[in-house]
């Protein structure tokens, strides 16, 4: 995830430049770089502690809206992984679920406003369905990535009503949402790691 945010820094920043304040890639790279430093000596800590620390670090280091939003997602995930040293697929889906809830609450946003939620919610639904269909862990997350990518495509068709892009409103149509894109990249990293 850290490498991915570093690699996609310019792309995400360019996307953000088109419709908002042009800092998403830079902010995400800075945030995940800070996470890397923070968790470097965390080898023996439980997953909950690692996720919570990552979340708090993102809140401190990102500087843009992605900080409180991704930070909340990681911290909420950390709470349900408290004391656990292994994460199974249902834990992972549960983490995405509490992340969606946390982000909706923190950002006072719903689906269809051209935000990261337009990738997150469809990917959550796809993963829940794939899980109940009995697919493998890797397939489940790949279904999530596919749905997230479709969600990113969907954000091109709508005007932003939340976040900085809402200032340009209708003129944001045609551009994909940077937050939805960064979420899709991060989920793709998980799929490729399995």
């Amino acid at each position: 995830m850290i490498r991915c945010m570093e690699q996609e820094k310019e792309f995400l920043t360019d996307l953000d430049n088109a419709i908002a304040d042009g800092d998403h890639g830079i902010n995400m790279a800075r945030g995940f770089c800070a996470v890397e430093q923070k968790i470097a000596d965390f080898g023996s800590k439980d997953i909950g502690t690692v996720l919570k620390t990552a979340g708090m670090t993102l809140v401190s280091a990102v500087g843009g809206s992605a900080g409180p939003l991704y930070g909340t997602a990681f911290m909420k995930s950390g709470m349900i992984m408290n004391g656990k040293n292994e994460m199974n697929i249902s834990d992972f889906i549960e983490c995405i679920k509490v992340s969606v809830e946390g982000i909706m609450q923190r950002g006072k946003a719903v689906r269809g406003e051209k935000t990261m939620l337009d990738a997150m919610i469809p990917s959550l639904e796809a993963m829940e369905k794939a899980f109940s269909d009995g697919l493998s862990d890797k397939e489940i997350i790949e279904h999530g990535v596919e749905a997230a990518k479709n969600g990113v495509e969907f954000t091109k068709t709508i005007a932003a009503t939340k976040g900085r892009a809402s200032y340009i409103g209708e003129r944001s149509i045609g551009h994909q949402d940077p937050g939805a894109t960064s979420y899709t990249f991060l989920l793709d990293v998980v799929a490729n790691a399995l």
Binding site: V59, V62, G63, G64, S65, A66, G67, P68, L69, G71, T72, R106, G107, G163, R164
Partner: peptide
């Protein structure tokens, strides 16, 4: 002012 200022201050 706006955006992350609102959310970070809330936190």
């Amino acid at each position: 002012d706006m955006g992350s200022a609102v959310m970070t201050a809330e936190m």
